[in-house]
């Protein structure tokens, strides 16, 4: 096995990076892949909370890097999925305790044993972000259909281009088709039009996501949730399957147009 390293980033905070990581990880692991999530947000960790593993943390990523424990000891196994692991961030340290080459070394050590390594990048474009993208084979940029989030995503895509990270794809999170129809929210086309990168998923706004995050049960485990379905589709596309985009709004034929746009690049 040689793992694919996927970093989830956004520039702006609060667009749903951590939720996206947890849900894609759950979806990939439910399909039988061996997945390790790394929380790159050192000093502000919360992937453990969203995955419901907070009370199992003994060692964290800084302990591994500074040699206080073995990599295996810092990998926390998920409660439900035996092939899903989390390497938590340190809460009492800051981003400077880790360097890009530390991240490369860590991922190289994991690569032979797993299928996917998902890295949750912190917001911003500073040290923590640099650490998170250093080992990435592929970067998923998460944005919301809001002008400020799209502007930051554009900046991140520009940095990724400058660093010659070729495989970049976009996730539009929290799209509300009703608001788009009233012209109160940017549409998926507006966002894609500006960013001009490949679209890998659109996640509709869904209260279940918040409830799931608070309970530590990612919504991708809920077979009935629309957002859960969207995350499962993203996981399938990551594995190379050709999955049609969900019909978020039947009347407007948005689905057809989005598919056309996605096929454009």
């Amino acid at each position: 096995m040689t793992a694919q390293v996927i970093t989830i980033s956004s520039g702006k905070g609060g667009v749903g990076k951590t939720t996206t990581v947890a849900n894609i990880a759950v979806a990939l692991a439910s399909d039988g892949a061996k997945v390790v999530c790394i929380d790159g947000d050192i000093g502000l960790r919360n992937l453990d909370v969203v995955m419901g593993l907070e009370n199992r943390i003994v060692y964290d990523i800084v302990d591994v890097i500074e040699g206080r424990c073995k990599l295996r000891q810092a990998m926390i196994r998920d409660k439900h999925l035996s092939e899903l692991y989390l390497i938590p961030a340190a809460q009492t340290r800051d981003k400077n305790s880790v360097s890009p080459s530390d991240m490369n070394r860590l991922c190289d050590e994991l690569r032979p044993d797993v299928d996917f390594i998902l890295i949750d990048s912190p917001a911003g474009i500073e040290r923590g972000f640099r650490n998170a993208i250093a080992p990435a084979d592929r970067v998923l940029v998460v944005t919301n259909p809001e002008v400020s989030a799209v502007r930051d995503a554009d900046r991140v895509v520009g940095i990724l281009e400058a660093e010659e990270k070729r495989q970049t794809a976009l996730i539009i999170n929290r799209l509300n088709p009703a608001l788009v129809k009233q012209h109160d929210m940017l549409s998926a086309e507006d966002v894609l039009d500006l960013l001009g990168i490949r679209l890998i998923g659109i996640v509709p706004e869904d209260e279940g996501v918040i409830v799931g995050s608070n309970r530590g049960v990612p919504v991708a485990q809920d077979g009935k949730s629309r957002a859960g379905q969207a995350f499962r589709n993203i996981a399938k596309r990551i594995r190379g399957e050709d999955v049609a985009f969900m019909d978020l709004d039947k009347q407007s034929g948005l689905w057809n147009r989005i598919q056309k746009m996605a096929g454009r690049k």
Binding site: I125, R151, D152, D154, R155, G158
Partner: peptide, 25 residues
């Protein structure tokens, strides 16, 4: 020959030709 994205600042002592978009920011 590329899209100039948010945060990029291009300064040049001659003409500038962009084959691509110049995004906000």
């Amino acid at each position: 020959n590329k899209t100039i994205r948010s945060g990029a600042r291009i300064e040049f002592s001659g003409h500038v030709v962009v084959l691509g978009d110049v995004n906000p920011g």
